[in-house]
Design a protein around this nucleic acid. Structure first.
Lengths: 314, 314
DNA sequence: GTGAAAGCGCTAACAC
DNA sequence: GTGTTAGCGCTTTCAC
């Protein structure tokens, strides 16, 4: 009845629908769901805390949800924990597809692969060839490195707080920084993978002669900036500081912090596009052989006042 | 078949279920859903951005989701916008109940009331007598006020950034502060409802003689603290500063900021308890007359180093 | 082209 | 107590 050669005009069709709706009728969703074999739900399967605290994920998921909604889908939160209730949700086919971000346990990836549940990985790499979408953290790292090198810094450190969950973007950002440094023929990157106390020790060690530090995220930047102030190290006069992710509270700190922004909203809608594409392809009986290749999005430098040329050595 | 006088022992029942499950069988969820007239989904209906950026909501929703999951329910994100797709979701009964936080448009509240969809309001008051759960912001305000008064402050300001969406807790926190001030016989509260620039002007106006400022949230506190530093006003030596919500980055700022914490996790599980209670009562045919009364939870003072006795007037 | 009927997979009510 | 069947409300197919 949904054919285009229907004798009933489009206008009439619409009027009928409109009237039916006004009379309070709506298609029963559970019945449609059973009959069509669809749930019209996408599961957001996540480990640990709700993955929204970080502004990057907040924005990304916002646009992800919007795009899904425009296609008649809703996003369902599926926490992963020891109870394995997430497994029931997937095996019971409570969702038509799923999204994961940041990281996922192996058995989760195995499960979706076995069951053939359409899945998209957001900001995640090691994905068994599953459709993925992530920012180009290596390129972002190069952006950061070049910015500092152009300002005249020779000796640069990167600081990552290792108490946080590791993420592949750490390595990627590091590689980008190193590439930029190598290209410029400057001295090699000093890596500080530790907590804030120890980062301070390294930065203040004059034998390292560090004049600029790149923090992995706004979290490291916020606490390190505080410590620097406390220790009487002025930013950017004595030390340039920058980080990744253009999120709260970077713009409100003293000084406002230079950062490399990831295209969070774009990741969201691209992800939705990809996932809905997979679901569509699956239902139209296509072979699932053509897994879409990973989409990689460019990052962008946002210059603020926490980075400046190094003090000339006196 | 679910009776307790069943001849099949509990152990056998479990073994059968276990085996069936191992053989790969699970009850088809869509069919169950249709047959039982349940969707096993709760809608989180929200306006604007994803409501998780603020750490308070993050933690609250985390425990909300967990509790729902333990009861076999999933939380579905239902954004409210001009397209009114949320209305379709509710009218189509795509959810068994819903949760709202912070604020909700009138037609949304009307809709759930008309349709009789079990609903719980999280951190929201003006709710048509709907089940609600919120922190006692007035009590929190008193906590803040007493803390500063005990330190010896006489002239206190409260700062709210009016560019943010208004929330009833602003008034409640203000009332609490005023009550504490009145009780102590100190001078009246100076209200600053504006942006950060103007807040600075008021604070530096010596005719006001303000020695302590209470910020509405971590956002105001973060930016105001920055401005104060920039202006050479030392916290807490020249000015005590505190706020509400124990969230990032308060503990990482210089100095770490004193704050009044809301019991976010408890709000979450209490809310789930309440909502599931309503759904259960509804299905067991009880009259919906006994709407649970609002639950009000106590807040807690967390003292850090941004508050201190005022400088003795020289 | 139009209308009736057979499922979707489960639940619950009903006879045996 | 146990097995059978109607029915949830839609979609889709298959006769007319």
């Amino acid at each position: 009845m949904s054919a285009e050669d229907c004798p009933i005009s489009e206008a009439t069709r619409r009027r009928v629908r409109q009237t039916a709706r006004e009379l309070g009728y709506r298609a029963n969703w559970q019945a449609q769901s059973l009959s069509r074999g669809r749930t019209y739900a996408i599961g957001l399967v996540y480990e640990g805390n709700l993955p929204f605290l970080d502004g990057v994920y907040n924005e990304m998921l916002g646009s992800f949800v919007q795009s899904l909604r425009d296609a008649g889908y809703h996003l369902q939160l599926v926490p992963v924990d020891h109870q394995e209730s997430w497994k029931e949700a997937l095996l019971g086919r409570r969702v038509d597809g799923c999204a994961m971000l940041h990281s996922a346990p192996d058995d989760l990836l195995d499960t979706v692969a076995e069951l053939g549940i359409p899945t998209v990985l957001l900001n995640m790499d090691r994905g068994r060839g599953l459709p993925a979408i992530c920012p180009d953290d290596e390129q972002g790292g190069r952006l950061a490195g070049r910015h500092l090198l152009e300002l005249g810094h020779q000796r640069i450190a990167m600081y990552v707080d290792t108490s946080e969950t590791p993420h592949f973007s750490i390595a990627a950002r590091r590689r980008g920084l190193e590439q930029a440094i190598e290209q410029a023929g400057a001295r090699e990157l000093v890596m500080i993978e530790d907590n804030c106390e120890d980062a301070m020790a390294v930065l203040r060690d004059t034998s390292h002669d560090i004049t600029a530090v790149v923090c992995y995220s706004q979290y490291e930047a916020t606490s390190l900036l505080s410590r620097l102030w406390t220790a009487g190290v002025s930013v950017p006069r004595d030390m340039s500081l920058m980080c990744f992710n253009d999120e709260f509270p970077l713009a409100d700190l003293i000084p406002p912090v230079t950062t490399v922004a990831v295209p969070s909203a774009e990741m969201g809608w691209r992800g939705a596009e990809m996932l809905l594409g997979c679901i569509g392809a699956e239902s139209s009986g296509d072979q699932p052989g053509d897994a879409p290749r990973p989409v990689v999005l460019q990052e962008q430098l946002i210059t603020r006042s926490s980075t400046a040329p190094p003090r000339s050595p006196s």
